[in-house]
Design a binder for these strands. Structure first.
Length: 303
DNA sequence: AATCGGACCAACCGCCCGCGA
DNA sequence: ATCGCGGGCGGTTGGTCCGAT
């Protein structure tokens, strides 16, 4: 089969390590315009000296508009713990149950926090020798809180809004985003790599940005195209919903979320018979289904 | 003030899988 | 049926931050 094949691309002359803001900008602009049909070809087409895999990872883990940043909530922690019991190190599966979170992020959280927390909890429960119903109640609350935050608290789920956000956020090209506490010095301490994702929240690819970028780079033609694109984007953003919906559809397609947000918003993640059949084979769905049907009255389940 | 060590996390590496030729 | 390719996934690494000494 395909095993043992050469690396996905010739790595000679390619950039490695932390992504610069310019690289991020190029990647975003390219994907906004063309999507990412072929990750391997993308870097060249986008004018990036990066491996396709690296671009894919950067987009999926940090640049995607629906990424949810910040600390994990207790509920998210519990969900991860419970799903890990079911699935083991299937981070992508676990991530699919935590909207806005990435497998990489979940993996990191598990390795740095949850594994230790779980170990200490187990030690404690061993010494106290208490019954395990605390765990089940935790699981139950996990289900509700998981989808409660999907429905109410998680703005990242609203892909339409997010798409608008992507197009409307003000940008002073790669200027240090203002910290919430207004400590500009803090942001300047952060490396380009770590700050770039944060910076993403605070910038948009505007024509001005592209013009500045243009002066930085040899890709004049591409930059001009980007300027045109972003100019169009700003006009289109003003046009409103249609483009947002297009972006929403695009994102849903790209992220494999087709219909998911709608279903979640209706609070009826488990509904028809076909889904039910499918879920009986899926431990995660079974887990949620079990929690749902055994623990909560109907009106609560559908609220 | 300097040093050290642990925590954190972004990014890379290499294997695996599915799909199309 | 076989093979090659692209994409996805999980494990690991390395750089940075930050608190303790």
């Amino acid at each position: 089969m395909g095993r043992g094949r050469a690396p996905c691309c010739a790595k000679v002359g390619l950039n490695k390590g932390s992504w610069t803001q310019e690289e991020d900008l190029r990647l975003i602009a390219y994907i906004q315009k063309h999507g990412h049909g072929n990750w391997r070809a993308l870097p060249k087409l986008a004018g990036l000296l990066r491996c396709g895999k690296s671009c894919r990872l950067r987009w999926i883990n940090y640049l995607r508009p629906d990424i949810k940043r910040g600390n994990f909530t207790k509920e998210e922690d519990d969900t991860i713990i419970n799903l890990h019991k079911l699935l083991g190190n299937k981070w992508s599966k676990i991530a699919s149950c935590l909207p806005g979170r990435t497998d990489n992020e979940i993996k990191n959280v598990w390795n740095t926090h949850l594994k230790k927390r779980l170990a200490s909890e187990e030690r404690r429960s061993m010494s106290v020798d208490k019954p395990d119903d605390s765990q089940s109640s935790s699981s139950s609350s996990t289900y509700l809180s998981c989808y409660a935050h999907v429905e109410k608290d998680d703005p990242s789920l609203d892909l339409a809004d997010l798409s608008i956000e992507m197009f409307e956020l003000p940008m002073d090209i790669w200027g240090s985003p203002q910290q919430e506490d207004g400590t500009g010095d803090e942001s300047s301490k952060v490396s380009p790599c770590s700050s770039s994702s944060d910076a993403m929240k605070d910038f948009l690819v505007t024509p001005d940005a592209v013009i500045q970028l243009e002066s930085l780079s040899p890709w004049q033609e591409e930059a001009a195209a980007m300027a045109e694109l972003t100019q169009r984007n700003s006009v289109e953003a003003a046009e409103g919903e249609d483009k947002s919906l297009e972006w929403l559809e695009y994102l849903e397609k790209e992220l494999g979320l087709c219909g998911a947000s709608e279903e979640m918003n209706q609070g009826s993640f488990v509904r028809d018979a076909a889904e039910q059949t499918e879920m009986e084979e899926d431990p995660v769905s079974s887990y949620f289904q079990k929690e749902l049907t055994s623990t909560y009255p109907l009106d609560l389940r559908l609220s």
